[in-house]
Amino acid sequence: ALLNFYPRCHTVLRDYGIEGPFREPVREIIAGTRTETVHRENGVTFHLDARKVMFSAGNLNERMRMGNLGRGEYVVDMFAGIGYFSLPMAVHSRPRKVLAIELNPNAYHYLCLNIKKNGVERIVEPVLGDCAKVTPEGVADRVVMGMVQVTDRYLLKGIGALRSGGVLHYHQTVPSLMYPKRAVCDIEEAARALGRRSEILGCIRVKKYSPGVVHSVVDARIK
């Protein structure tokens, strides 16, 4: 029925959610065979395999917002995925450099492909590795932490990557009744642990994550 309703589509997948250390989708083909596709939005092209990597339509506004930031800057994109935030920045804002770190080999494959397809090889440098081990220190004007649920475990690394005065974009899932206080406290405590100061620039509700839980982003300047 879905294929009849959407004649340009070739495959239908049943989605069972996300699991594992690589946060990979669990999806079953129930019609069709081909799961590689191309998604285009806001002048950016994303190649992906819908069975192997995540893509959230609900993050569109945040991807577009990132496309307006970072001009001339050194950006570190932790948990870069297939280039969700690195690519809009590189295509529209033209940072001096974006270091895009990704642990999942499947996502890294499409990250490299998307860098090439969008013609931003001179801007985006992909790195296959664990953010806890390969995130550089004290080099970035801006750090994007586009993971949720476990992001707080990497906050010391994210803040440590920033020069004085750099900006952090911290994604996290937060109970609705504790938004944005809990995420703000995460940043303030991590900054203090490193002997640094934080100035909260803004808080955004990206989307509803689950009943009573929101996906939030907190922007903070780290001094």
Rank of each mutant, 00 (worst) to 15 (best):
V12M: 09
R14P: 04
D15W: 10
D15Q: 07
D15S: 14
Y16L: 12
Y16T: 02
I18G: 09
I18V: 15
E19T: 09
G20F: 08
P21M: 12
F22N: 11
F22V: 02
R23N: 06
E24Y: 09
P25K: 01
V26A: 12
E28M: 09
I29Y: 04
A31P: 03
A31W: 05
A31F: 01
G32F: 08
G32E: 08
T33W: 09
R34T: 11
R34G: 06
R34Y: 05
R34W: 11
T35F: 07
T35W: 03
E36V: 12
V38T: 15
H39G: 07
R40G: 04
E41Y: 03
E41I: 04
N42K: 02
G43R: 06
G43T: 08
V44S: 02
F46K: 00
F46H: 10
H47C: 14
H47M: 14
L48A: 05
L48M: 15
D49M: 09
D49L: 08
A50N: 07
R51A: 12
K52G: 06
V53E: 02
V53R: 11
F55N: 02
F55E: 03
F55V: 05
A57T: 11
G58W: 12
G58E: 13
L60S: 13
N61A: 15
N61R: 14
R63Y: 06
M64N: 13
M64Y: 05
M64A: 13
M64L: 12
M66W: 01
M66S: 09
G67Q: 08
G67P: 00
G67V: 00
L69E: 14
G70C: 04
R71Y: 11
R71N: 13
G72H: 07
G72Q: 06
G72C: 02
G72Y: 08
E73W: 06
E73F: 06
V75W: 00
V76G: 01
D77L: 06
M78C: 14
F79K: 00
A80R: 04
A80H: 09
A80I: 10
A80C: 09
G81P: 07
I82L: 14
I82G: 03
G83S: 03
S86R: 08
L87A: 03
A90S: 15
V91A: 09
V91I: 15
H92V: 03
H92I: 01
S93M: 06
S93L: 08
R94W: 12
P95Y: 00
R96Q: 14
R96Y: 08
K97W: 05
K97D: 06
K97T: 10
K97H: 13
V98T: 02
L99A: 05
A100F: 04
A100E: 11
I101T: 07
E102Y: 09
